[in-house]
Design a protein around this nucleic acid. Structure first.
Length: 487
RNA sequence: GGCGGCAUAGCCAAGUGGUAAGGCAGAGGCCUGCAAAGCCUUUAUUCCCCGGUUCGAAUCCGGGUGCCGCCUCCA
């Protein structure tokens, strides 16, 4: 089976054929560290996280680089507002970003280079561009001349003459063409500055990615990704710079993820509806957020709503449900499948999941298959009992497959007991109650049930319901759970 | 003005030529004192509209309508 990916450059799905068979070199544009991360960042990072995980699961040796843009106008502005140095601002938000990523169960890239640590590489490329005649300088600024690069516009599918130059921004009169972009920027006093052939200055936004990707992945590499908004101008400019400088194709497959809307509205500063990762994971389980993000295709727009998160959270409970039953049955987690069955890599479930993922990382389809598998597993448990299931190699291989898909999606990473326990703790905290009190209520209810005082029993259940507690009467006794998807 | 995307049940969503996955919500059933959880059944004669190609189209082609994104910093 070959993996097919939608390539923004060719506007079609193509078979993924890495430059070096079996190896994939992937570069994803990371954040400009001037503020906290919002759900849009989360989507982008999660999308490439699952691509990374899937490619590895399919046996590729993946080298994954994601940069931090740690020098930029936005950072300088932010530093002025906060009365901090730009370096301190960058450091603060890099730390925050890493925390957010850890909470969201994100794999770390193999490398997370900083723009400011690669100034000499950047300068070297700007000089090459200047020597080759693709760049010109004006008072300490160096610009890339888009007219010298005939293929300019090939990624975003636009022609220079079709674009409304300066429609919304004032054009710098020193530019030869309004779409010329800055490679190197003269620093004003007090701004971060490095010595360069053109005087004290700092890199333009796009050049760092050309420099760092070339250094770590080579002048041609396999996958380059980011949000859709980066197609123009950022990635268009990267292509121009890199291909002009190195004289060879830059990237084989361009992958771009779609945007997130909040309650059917675009996220924007003016609407003030930016949703931060931190706000979401304070309310919902991080894996519920991941599940939500995978609920439709990565290139489509995705609408964040309270209801959608509820559904994702319910779905996650549904997935963890049978896992908890298995954990309780075998008394540990994760199960060791070698003991139960020979075939634990590549059952029907895993193969169907791969089929979905092979088709341009179709996680929505993959999740459909996963839920089907959960239902089949629940049914098997109902019919054969847990010991019956765990003795059946067909069933255990399905469980192994289920955990494998979870590993690709970055969910089911908690032990089931712990997953539900966390949610129960949240119930205790928000209700200001403790376990003993609940257990006492459950005992009282058991007494009432014994004497067939069902009115009393139901009253106790209703009372607990007020604290978002749900009771389940099981053969082995009554247990309590959290009532809704929030944590 | 230029470029691109989308339109599938109450909601979310997969499906790119062979007769509509999956989730949430709803209805009925099994189980239960009643519930909850789980399971079973059920919920689109039909995929925005109109034409066309085809034995056959949600899927391809032409036209229309509606919504959205980008062209400016933005994931």
């Amino acid at each position: 089976m070959t993996i097919r990916v939608y390539n923004t450059l060719t506007r079609q799905k193509e078979a993924l054929e890495p430059l070096i068979p079996g190896k994939i070199k992937m570069y994803v544009c990371g954040p400009t560290v001037y503020d906290s991360c919002h759900i849009g960042h989360a989507r982008s990072v999660v999308v490439f996280d699952v691509i990374y995980r899937y490619l590895r699961a399919r046996g590729y040796d993946v080298f994954y680089v994601r940069n931090f843009t740690d020098v930029d106008d936005k950072i300088i502005n932010r530093a002025n507002t906060l009365a901090m140095s730009p370096e301190a601002v960058a450091k603060k938000y890099i730390k925050e970003f890493r925390q957010d990523m850890a909470v969201l169960n994100m794999c770390s890239p193999d490398l997370e280079p900083l723009a400011t640590a690669h100034i000499s590489h950047i300068i070297r490329i700007v000089r090459i561009l200047e020597e080759k005649g693709f760049a010109y300088h004006r008072d300490g600024d160096v610009f890339f001349s888009v007219e010298k690069w005939p293929e300019y516009g090939k990624l975003s599918g636009r022609k220079l003459e079709d674009m409304e130059a300066g429609a919304r921004v004032e054009v710098d009169q020193r530019k030869e063409n309004p779409f010329d972009f800055v490679l190197w920027k003269a620093s004003k006093p007090g701004e971060p500055a490095w010595d360069s052939p053109w005087g004290k200055g700092r890199p333009g936004w796009h050049i760092e990615c050309s420099a760092m990707s070339a250094k770590y992945l080579g002048e041609t590499f396999d996958i380059h990704g980011g949000g859709k908004d980066l197609i123009f101008p950022h990635h268009e400019n990267e292509i121009a710079q890199s291909e002009a400088a190195f004289g060879k194709p830059f990237v084989r497959y361009w992958i771009h993820n779609g945007f997130i809307n909040i309650n059917h509205e675009k996220m924007s500063k003016s609407l003030g509806n930016f949703l931060m990762i931190n706000d979401i994971v304070n309310t919902w389980h991080p894996e519920a957020l991941r599940l939500f993000l995978f609920s439709n295709h990565y290139r489509s727009p995705l609408d964040y709503t309270e209801q959608a998160m509820h559904e994702a959270a319910s779905g996650l409970d549904k997935i963890y449900g049978p896992l908890l039953r298995i954990e309780e049955h075998i008394g540990k987690w994760p199960p060791e499948f070698e003991k139960y069955g020979p075939d634990n890599n590549g059952g029907v479930l895993w193969n169907r999941f791969c089929e979905a993922m092979d088709d341009d990382f179709n996680t929505a389809r993959g999740i459909g298959i996963l839920f089907e598998a959960v239902r089949i597993l629940n049914r098997a448990i109902d019919e054969k009992g847990l010991s019956g299931v765990m003795r059946d190699s067909l069933e255990t291989s399905r469980i192994a497959d289920l955990l494998k898909t979870g590993n690709v999606l970055g969910i089911m990473a908690e032990t089931p007991h712990r997953y539900f326990e966390k949610r129960k703790e949240a119930v205790l905290e928000s209700g200001g109650i403790d376990r003993d009190w609940i257990e006492e209520k459950i005992r009282e209810r058991a007494e009432a049930r014994k004497t067939k005082d069902f009115a009393r029993a139901d009253a106790i259940r209703d009372e607990l319901g007020q604290y978002n507690i749900v009771l389940e009467d099981r053969p082995e006794g009554t247990i309590w759970k959290h009532g809704d998807g929030k944590t």
